[in-house]
Design a protein around this nucleic acid. Structure first.
Lengths: 194, 194
DNA sequence: GACGGAGCTAAACGGTCGTTTAGAACGGTT
DNA sequence: AACCGTTCTAAACGACCGTTTAGCTCCGTC
């Protein structure tokens, strides 16, 4: 009773602990390979609690994915709002992945499993902003695709890169180097498109 | 008896049918989500045959992954042997993914699930060739990473791109456009590195 | 102080999983 | 003709899965 008398507030309530454990497990192992029993154990609750709060494994998964997508969406939207540049967009995407590494794994699995329909729905609101700033022509689209691929690829293949080159691709120094490279790549593309 | 009397040769023997069905299923759904019963049904055999020929689900998976990696390895090696250019390498990687679309999904899942150790082992023999041609400095490494990310990203995100922009990103025209863009990107990088 | 709903638990349910087993079919060898 | 190894099948096994159920505790309300 030294800590608190009203424990059931919010910050680490049962629901939040389940969400955190689910993000870890789902990003690391995928929907099918994760088990509600494991997630529940990591969250320190009973498996039945997952159904109580979320209605089932699939619904929990979709809650987690929706939250991850919302976070990414907010980041990219903020970057576009404050400065309409490919470099700024690339930097925002890079920083998002650098700070929340499991997100890329989760969202990539979602694309691989779901065929991209849900992800497209997420990105669609961004599209209006994107084309307003960067235009609609093929070169801009191709460049944007390359840029996002270059950013995401680094994090996806980070384990391979680490094994291959030695050193930790996720160390602050390596991340700073990569960040500089990606921003420069974005600038180059912007110039050639303009 | 009109077709053949010696059926147990090779081209579409039981083992080969299992491998083909397994590639489809494993690339589409992943190791954990795929079931040996489904693979066996698609191959027109009994589930027990998978254990008879491969020793188990995991061993079948590793056979399929090893074969996919070997095919990619051969492609990249051939491209490097006949012309040491980033553009040639990018084109070879692009063509591989364009012709065998499920491969990228399979290998990407392997990286996501396996942490990259096996993939690194595959790419290691290529590394000597790569550095001999492109050098070892940071700019070349960063550029190569971006290039491979840009190529792979297109195929991974093809469903999203299709939903978003309309049209089929895997149509011959779209592929040709993307191929040109990637090769040009490679050339640009090569110039700035040189 | 009985009531009722919210939060939670332990146990069980039906189903699917990967794998094993017992044995049938069959061509080749002796 | 008896034997044998190979190929293959149908059935069963035990484990684990996601989910449901029955019931407990606790607390604010009347």
């Amino acid at each position: 009773m030294t800590q608190s008398t009203q424990t059931t507030a919010a910050p680490d309530g049962v629901r939040e602990r389940i969400l955190a454990a689910a993000l870890d497990e789902l990003a690391a192992r995928g929907l099918e390979a994760s088990s509600v029993r494991t997630i529940a154990r990591d969250a320190g609750v009973t498996p039945a609690m997952i159904n109580y709060y979320f209605g089932g494994k699939r619904a929990l998964y979709e809650t987690v994915v929706a939250e991850a997508q919302a976070r990414l969406h907010a980041r990219l939207g903020a970057a576009l709002a404050e400065g309409p540049s490919a470099a700024g967009l690339a930097a925002a995407y890079f920083d998002f992945l650098a700070e929340e590494g499991q997100m890329q794994r989760l969202l990539l699995r979602e694309v691989l499993d779901g065929g991209g329909a849900r992800s497209a729905e997420l990105v669609r609101p961004l599209r209006a902003i994107l084309t307003a700033y960067f235009g609609d022509d093929d070169r801009a689209v191709q460049g944007a695709l390359s840029l996002f691929g270059a950013v995401a690829g680094y994090f996806i293949y980070a384990p391979v890169v680490g094994e291959l080159l030695g050193g930790d691709p996720l160390s602050p120094e390596a991340l700073a180097r990569r960040r500089r490279h990606v921003i420069q790549l974005a600038s180059t593309m912007e110039e050639s498109t303009r």
